[in-house]
């Protein structure tokens, strides 16, 4: 089993969300699209501290290393997120609100 080269490991990459494309364009006034970022890449086994594993994730990655068929690898997912301010229409009213967990700030193996 060869280790994935570093550029394929778990990391944050650009991810453009287009509200018109998913059918939300009629009620979201602004922004119509934004860079949400996303998490992409493989989680090594065992997983190192640079991937912000929980204790559970670390143990799962050890088990994956020694007994590959018992568990899946941990998954590259957001460990830190940011809100997004959105201007939208709700029941005829125009609202400005902060929606949480809309932008990925940091990725890890969970």
């Amino acid at each position: 089993h060869h280790l994935p080269d570093r550029s394929q490991l778990c990391r944050k990459v650009k991810f453009q969300v287009d509200f018109n494309l998913i059918g939300w364009g009629s009620w979201i006034i602004y922004p119509k699209q934004y860079n949400a970022y996303r998490c992409e890449g493989e989680c090594p086994n065992p997983v190192g501290e640079e991937f912000h594993p929980t204790n559970h994730a670390y143990i799962q990655s050890l088990l994956k290393r020694y007994q590959p068929h018992r568990v899946p690898s941990t998954c590259c997912a957001p460990v830190k997120t940011k809100p997004l301010s959105m201007l939208y229409v709700d029941n005829g009213r125009v609202l400005l609100d902060h929606h949480k967990d809309m932008i990925v700030e940091e990725c890890g193996c969970l």
């Binding site: 991810f15 453009q16 969300v17 287009d18 998913i22 949400a36 996303r38 997120t81 949480k100 967990d101």
Partner: peptide
Amino acid sequence: LNHAVLRALMHAAAPGAA
């Protein structure tokens, strides 16, 4: 997460995008 919902919706609309 809100982000996960958006990701799933984007996947449904444009599978190559996410």
